[in-house]
Amino acid sequence: MDEINLMLNGEPVTVANRTNVQQLLLAQKIQLDRVAVVCGGDVVPKSMWSSTLCEEGNVIEIFGVVAGG
């Protein structure tokens, strides 16, 4: 299987097999210094992005920090 399908913020996305989270963000033109990532309900800490591979069927959420009060 050369490609895997996943959901990114509710939208279907297809990426190459063995794409890691950091590569996914870059491919989607998402600024790395503005977001946090959740995969399958678990936060993926930033230092793990490049070692965490996307898998078929992953549900990935990307969001910024809210700081107001």
Binding site: D33, R34, A36, P45, G64, V65, A67, G68
Partner: peptide, 20 residues
């Protein structure tokens, strides 16, 4: 972990009440 594990200090913030 802590708040910084989730939102490290280097993160750029765009969501505040003053601007949004």
């Amino acid at each position: 972990g802590c708040y910084h594990c989730l939102f490290p200090q280097s993160l750029k913030v765009s969501q505040g009440c003053d601007t949004q």
